[in-house]
């Protein structure tokens, strides 16, 4: 269970990115955070795995306050939290398999990783992760030779290598077209359902939110302005969505059910 209490982040230039944010995420949840760009979604996700240090507040995960961790303890905690990024953040010149294996760095000694050596077990895991995401035949290509959708799958595979209990996904589909967006969200849903990985995902599109979220909250100017359950979200119409989200809310396009067929077919 993840519990965030009184989380505040003020940047050095005085920008208040998060203002007294409180929420609880039970294990196995698919939580979607909605909000305009600049509303604090990215900051919130990065505060949880401490890529950004919060100014104030507690982030309690499995009884440990992540906000107070440092050094090796923080690294141990990060190992169990995967992260997927809007721009994939792959090492573009390295091979796909190297990018995926990088997910095991937290479990590998400095000496081994310096030599680029990973255990046979890790290599098998990487192979398995690639198979699960349907990109096993791309393993030895350079990451930047892959299409956007494939690159994001590599990003997910890297997160998966950490054997995470939770995945933070920061706008994972914002750089993808609608079909690929659905396909990737389905992958995350599978991880959520089959592997029981808690997912915190920031999203833009109403239909994706309605289709995949088990719980939602909306951020505006660093404050939580909306909390909703799966049912409440499903019942919501565009006008209500725009009210929390602002006028820029949009759908991926097409109907909710109708899209899934194409999404299933157009994986790569």
């Amino acid at each position: 269970m993840l519990e965030v209490r009184h989380l505040t982040k003020i940047y050095d230039d005085g920008t208040v990115a998060l203002r007294d944010v409180n929420f609880i995420v039970p294990d196995g949840e698919f939580l979607v955070i909605i909000g305009l760009s600049g509303s604090g979604k990215s900051t919130l996700l990065r505060c949880i795995n401490r890529l950004i240090d919060p100014t104030e507040g507690e982030i309690i995960w499995d009884g440990v306050d992540l906000a107070k961790l440092g050094g090796d303890d923080l690294r141990m905690a990060r190992r169990k939290i995967g992260m997927v990024f809007q721009h994939f953040n792959l090492v573009r010149r390295s091979s796909v398999i190297t990018n995926v294996l990088a997910g095991r760095l937290g479990y590998t000694s400095s000496r081994q990783s310096l030599l680029g050596r990973f255990s046979a077990e890790d290599n098998a895991k990487a192979q398995h992760a690639l198979e699960r995401l349907g990109i096993e035949d791309q393993a030895h290509k350079r990451a930047d030779e892959l299409s956007g959708g494939q690159q994001q799958r590599v990003g997910v595979a890297r997160a998966l290598m950490q054997e995470p209990k939770m995945i933070l996904a920061d706008e994972p589909v914002a750089s993808l077209d609608p079909v690929l967006a659905h396909s990737l969200m389905q992958q995350l849903e599978i991880l959520n359902k089959e592997d029981k990985i808690t997912i915190l995902c920031s999203l833009h599109y109403l239909d994706l939110v309605q289709r995949y979220a088990t719980s939602v909250f909306g951020l505006r100017d660093g404050e939580i302005v909306y909390r909703g359950t799966r049912e409440e979200i499903r019942a919501m119409n565009d006008e209500e969505f725009k009210e929390i989200y602002g006028q820029e809310a949009e759908r991926v396009g097409g109907g909710l059910q109708g899209d899934l067929l194409t999404a299933n077919g157009g994986g790569a």
Partner: peptide, 30 residues
């Protein structure tokens, strides 16, 4: 260099040396 891969490797729980080897060096070698 692109800070993206650096934060991605940090997020996996890698230590400083691993971040340099896996995220910084591949970017500056070419």
């Amino acid at each position: 260099i692109d800070p993206g891969p650096i934060e991605a490797i940090q997020a996996t729980g890698a230590n400083w040396l691993q971040v340099v080897v896996y995220a910084v060096i591949p970017q500056i070698i070419p």
